[in-house]
Simulated scan of single mutants.
Amino acid sequence: MNILITPKEQICKELTDIDSFLNITMSENAEEAVLRGNDLAVYVARSGKLLADAKYWLNEAMNSETMKTLAETAKNAKATATAINALVNSLCREERYLVDWCERCNRTATHQLSWCVTVISKAKEEMKMTGMYNNNNRQKC
């Protein structure tokens, strides 16, 4: 099963690439929206997979024997559940960061893909309107 899980370093590298693409401002050109939309569809799928992998690594870190021992020690020392959770969360901060970053990239790519659809729909409507206008002018002549 582990052979399908993307290593943490690879997740970070891929997210850096995806994030760079997501930070490019798109014009309202329909052809650009089609090309960008194709890339975004891939990034939505890939960031979803990376999110699942990042959650795997977070769960692995939280379920490690070291974490269990620390949580048990804190519990025996009469630490509150909030304090124990804060301790575990702070020790898993890198894995949690990857999960948060994956979620952000996935959401952003999804919203940008919707924007591409809107730009393409607008261009189609403009083409229809231009075609209707041209047809009406020809008939009057």
Rank of each mutant, 00 (worst) to 15 (best):
N63C: 08
Y43A: 14
A86F: 06
A79E: 13
V34G: 05
Q139G: 01
I3W: 14
Y133D: 06
T69E: 10
K55G: 07
V119W: 06
E126A: 06
P7A: 10
K8P: 04
K49W: 09
A30W: 10
M132F: 02
R107K: 12
K13E: 14
M67N: 10
L40D: 05
A109G: 09
E94C: 00
L98A: 03
I84D: 07
A61V: 10
S20D: 07
E9H: 14
G48W: 03
L113Q: 03
S20Y: 09
M26C: 04
R138Q: 08
A123I: 05
I24K: 08
C12Y: 08
C92G: 07
L4C: 09
A83V: 04
T73C: 07
L98P: 04
V34Q: 14
K49E: 12
A77W: 04
K128W: 08
I11D: 10
T66I: 10
L70R: 10
K68V: 01
C12Q: 15
A52H: 13
R46L: 03
E14M: 08
A45Y: 13
L70N: 06
E28P: 00
V42W: 13
V119Y: 03
A30T: 01
L113F: 11
N63L: 11
R93Q: 12
G48K: 11
S114W: 00
M26N: 04
L70K: 08
E9K: 15
E32N: 09
D17T: 05
T130G: 02
P7R: 10
N59A: 14
V99A: 02
E126G: 07
E32L: 13
D39H: 07
R46M: 01
E125F: 11
A86C: 01
T80M: 03
T6E: 06
S47E: 06
D53I: 00
A45K: 15
K140L: 15
Q139D: 09
V44W: 05
N76M: 12
K8W: 02
L50S: 08
E9C: 12
V99S: 01
I5M: 04
L40F: 05
V117G: 00
A33M: 05
I84G: 04
L15G: 03
Y56W: 09
N134K: 13
L70T: 01
N135P: 00
D53M: 06
T25N: 09
M62E: 15
D100T: 07
Q112V: 00
S64M: 12
R96T: 12
E28A: 10
R138C: 04
V99D: 00
V119L: 05
I11G: 11
N38E: 14
L98M: 12
E9D: 14
L50H: 03
I3Y: 14
A54C: 13
T69C: 03
L113M: 04
I120L: 02
V44R: 03
L91G: 08
A86P: 00
I11C: 10
M1H: 01
I11N: 09
A83D: 14
A71W: 05
V119E: 00
N63P: 02
N134R: 14
A52D: 15
L40S: 05
G37S: 01
R138M: 11
T25S: 12
E72R: 08
G37C: 04
T16C: 11
W57G: 06
Q139H: 04
K68Q: 12
N135G: 02
Y43M: 15
Y56T: 01
C92Q: 10
C141Y: 15
K124L: 07
T80P: 11
F21D: 10
N106G: 09
W57A: 10
E95M: 07
